[in-house]
């Protein structure tokens, strides 16, 4: 079933040519409503979705309603106050700062993580000889397995580990730096200096995630028929060009899903921060919305206000996903859902 001519490649494909065959085109037609179909839909869609709505969506919808109230979170009563929580929110400089931090993270973390992951995946898969078949590196499975380790460790534990490593006096990092003769780092507070804190925490998140996406991309690249690479080589494409103009377009959909999922994580980042910077970091440079939301809800007892923050967070996350879809489509990807 796979037919692939080198013609498509020599023309410098930036996107897979049309005619992709997918299954998502079956049209719902009323006259097809058989007993089989009805029960099928009922069991396959209606019940799971009802379950999902009852346990996940409806609590969230209620929380969204709370955002229009002055609920403390503990009282039985609450008053409807319209949009004033939202008005307060956009005048709250701390929250806006947290939003800015989150947005910076949602840009840096996905780009760096996925960039590094893609780079490593490329090294592992096509770093081998150019003679004969396209080859990967020796002991690539070792790199794969090792890189994946951090993903298995709970985020809270990753945070704990790194807060120890970053410890100014007894931490591993400064220990190494001072042994290398860099005495100025003797008591340097990586997590406590406004110049370094946000990069230090982003590094931890990236450290934790690169391996997962690397494994993802390796598997995806391995799914590309070898002839594609052979053909590219015959055409004289170098490694770099091959990666840019062949590999990435061919695994475009993986990259999109990866971008969305990691973006959701970067916009949340609560667990990492709870361990690394529970207080929001120096000058609040690492404060994220979820943290602000948490203290507002539980310590300050302004649950309605916290729910408004939650709604804003959800909207930003959805907007981010929409942006990723749009960018992908702009560069020639297919639409993300339906037809």
């Amino acid at each position: 079933m796979t037919t692939l001519t080198s013609g498509g490649l020599t023309s410098g494909v930036s996107a897979p040519p049309g005619g992709l065959r997918r299954i998502g085109s079956a049209r719902w037609r009323r006259r097809n409503l058989t007993f089989d179909k009805i029960t099928f839909f009922l069991v396959f869609l209606v019940i799971p979705v009802a379950f999902y709505i009852a346990f996940v969506v409806s609590p969230f919808v209620q929380a969204a309603y709370f955002s229009l109230t002055d609920w403390t979170g503990f009282s039985p009563g609450m008053n409807f106050i319209g949009l004033s929580n939202y008005a307060k929110l956009f005048a709250d400089s701390t929250f806006l700062q947290a939003m800015g931090n989150n947005i910076l993270m949602a840009i840096v973390v996905p780009v760096v993580t996925l960039g590094v992951a893609m780079f490593f995946a490329t090294l592992v898969t096509v770093g081998g000889s150019t003679r004969g078949n396209v080859k990967g590196l020796r002991s690539s499975s070792f790199y794969r397995v090792v890189s994946f380790f951090p993903y298995v460790i709970p985020a809270i534990v990753i945070g704990l580990i790194w807060s120890q490593i970053y410890d100014p006096s007894a931490g591993l990092l400064n220990g190494i730096l001072t042994r290398l003769g860099l005495e100025q780092f003797a008591s340097f507070a990586w997590l406590g200096d406004p110049r370094t804190a946000r990069w230090a925490v982003m590094f931890v998140i990236i450290w934790g995630l690169v391996g997962f996406y690397m494994v993802l991309f390796i598997a995806a690249i391995k799914g590309i028929p070898a002839e594609v690479f052979e053909a590219a080589r015959i055409d004289g494409a170098g490694r770099f060009r091959t990666a840019i103009s062949i590999t990435i377009p061919l695994i475009r959909e993986n990259v999109q899903t990866a971008f969305i999922y990691i973006g959701i994580l970067a916009l949340d980042a609560f667990v990492y921060m709870a361990a690394l910077e529970p207080g929001g970091g120096p000058d609040n440079t690492t404060l994220v919305m979820a943290q602000q939301l948490f203290t507002t809800a539980f310590t300050k007892g302004q649950f309605g206000y916290a729910c408004a923050m939650g709604v804003v967070l959800a909207v930003i996350t959805l907007a981010y996903a929409g942006l990723v879809f749009a960018v992908n489509r702009f560069f020639g990807g297919k639409s993300e859902v339906g037809e």
Partner: peptide, 17 residues
């Protein structure tokens, strides 16, 4: 033909390789 990276036995390649 699946594209399987060879895990070992890298052929002697060019200097660039």
């Amino acid at each position: 033909v699946p594209f399987e990276p060879a895990e070992s036995g890298e052929a002697p390649g060019t200097a660039g390789d």
